[in-house]
Nucleic acid binder design. Structure first.
Length: 213
DNA sequence: ACATTAAGTGATT
DNA sequence: AATCACTTAATGT
């Protein structure tokens, strides 16, 4: 993607001068599907702004597996990463490309400068915090109040929206991992959804038939 | 044809 | 809802 396109994607979020700085100081990078941007325990030097595709953010426990928290799409940035910029702590989360994705990586030192310098940046950051917190709450609500069946349903619909396609090319094993459950359980629930006409299944792909959220 | 990997299932906790 | 143990089916070499 060229500079001109980057401007187009981001111009609604930032003022001209800031946009200029983002383009000049940011590193434009492409990631392929499943590629890892940030892993747990890693010190953060850059933070990402998504300009195409999407990222997924997960927590992980070496013993207990992983859990999907939320997605980052166009114009989103990662609150957990922002936290690391201020606190100088290491990452508590893992970030991975969901399909081919393009991001702009900005050095963390710019964060504090820009907070002071640009009003729009300030708003952008606070807004990001709010959005991420809201999504996280949603994830917690799911864990606390939903059974696995409705969690799975939400997960599939969400995934279809993020991917922009109801054809999900992924194994039940992968689905199970992101919901932190076992493949066998997913297999049974998915067959149930199939019998309800909500999804269609074949080896390696699952098609979400009812796309309404 | 054979090996590997994905998915389905009954029984048990 | 998790785990085990096993089967069946699809795909790769």
């Amino acid at each position: 993607m060229e500079e001109k396109q980057i401007r187009e994607e981001l111009q609604y979020y930032f003022e001209e001068e800031l946009l200029e700085e983002i383009i000049r100081k940011g590193i434009h990078k492409r990631f392929s599907n499943e590629e890892e941007l940030i892993s747990i325990g890693q010190p953060i030097r850059h933070f990402p702004i998504v300009i195409a595709g999407s990222l997924k953010v997960l927590t992980e426990d070496p013993e207990q597996g992983e859990l999907l928290l939320y997605y980052l799409e166009l114009g989103d940035t990662c609150a957990m990463t922002l936290q690391c910029c201020f606190g100088n702590t290491t990452s508590r989360i893992r970030v991975e490309a969901e399909g081919p994705t393009e991001v702009i990586l900005l050095p963390v030192q710019l964060m504090e400068q820009w907070i002071v310098k640009y009003q729009k940046w300030r708003r952008f950051i606070f807004n990001s915090y709010y959005e991420r917190l809201r999504e996280m709450l949603e994830a917690i609500n799911g864990l606390a109040f939903d059974n696995l069946e409705s969690r799975l349903e939400k997960y599939l619909k969400d995934k279809a929206l993020v991917k922009g396609s109801q054809e999900l090319k992924m194994t039940q094993h992968q689905i199970a991992a992101e919901l932190n459950t076992s493949r066998v359980v997913i297999s049974r629930l998915i067959r149930k959804l199939e019998s309800q006409g909500k999804v269609a299944i074949s080896r390696g792909t699952i098609t979400v038939l009812e796309l309404r959220s």
